[in-house]
Write a protein that binds this DNA or RNA. Structure first.
Lengths: 157, 157
DNA sequence: TTCCGTGCAAATGATTTGCAGGACT
DNA sequence: AGTCCTGCAAATCATTTGCACGGAA
């Protein structure tokens, strides 16, 4: 968190941008989160505390944080963007539960290497990648199995 | 194409849906495409030929074709959805050029297997996945290098 | 005849933008 | 003082939906 706050301030300075109250509040709020969040999550969290900060400002600040390499965006094809902190975090990909929407991170070095190979084979200069595996997490898979079984005796669609 | 037309008609019949002129026209147009296309591409192609079909109908028909397993949707995080025919096509993933926006398909059996392993390790029941590698295709990488070199003697940003 | 489909216009919902008044440096 | 910012409302833009009319079965 401290490191991120400083990195952000440094970034603003380098760009000749101002360190305003709102930017500070938003950045600190974000640097306290774990996991993934949407722009609306941030806006809501301020609304709940009755110190509303305008949507636009939140969006604009998120953009800055992404440019500063302090946030990554992830698109889970849900119609809106999610963000996650990335300073000092290594690259990883995602397992996404289509039922409870939870997200598990994974990293497989072998896959990472094979990707490089794929790039080479196609003379493609890789810049970044996203690898998303959709399915059911342990809990949701269990639930699904149970309700499937339960339905059999009852003969109901 | 013939196969797909029949599969679609069969799908409609099974669902008690009607085989209308518009659905037929749209389906046939799509079954002639190669590569990726957006809903707007389809709408435009009809507009150009002065047999406009309403946007809504196109969207609704695309949904049906996806449900019929005749189309896949792919989200390249461009703010709109792309589709591709998938009947009889095996699964594959994508290399996406961020410059010219061209798309190269790839399939790596080793990666596919390793994914299964990742799922197992996390007790995750995989349903499907997307694996997108972004970067520069051969041509665009070359162009990028050239203009980078050219800039050096001239000393211009 | 009876739904199902279509086209249109309007709604949606996340994100972006224009603008006028405020706030950093 | 001179920019850079903020908040608001309005604009975007792809996609969806409500509704009245028209068409397949």
């Amino acid at each position: 968190m401290e490191q991120e706050v400083q990195a952000f301030q440094e970034f603003l300075r380098r760009r000749g941008l101002k360190l305003t109250t709102q930017r500070n509040i938003i950045a600190k709020r974000i640097f306290r989160t774990t996991g993934h969040f949407s722009a609306e999550d941030i806006v809501d969290s301020f609304r709940r505390e009755r110190k509303p900060i305008s949507k636009s400002t939140v969006y604009r600040t998120l953009d800055l944080l992404v440019e500063a390499d302090l946030l990554d965006t992830i698109d889970f094809d849900q119609g809106y963007r999610l963000y996650e902190r990335c300073l000092g975090r290594s690259h990883h990909d995602h397992l996404i539960c289509v039922d409870c929407r939870c997200v598990i991170e994974f990293l497989d070095e072998e896959i990472e290497q094979l990707q490089e190979q794929v790039g080479d084979e196609h003379k493609f200069r890789i810049l970044w990648h996203t690898h998303k595996i959709y399915g059911l997490c342990e809990g949701c898979a269990k639930k699904a199995d149970e309700s499937a079984t339960r339905r059999v005796p009852g003969r109901r669609s």
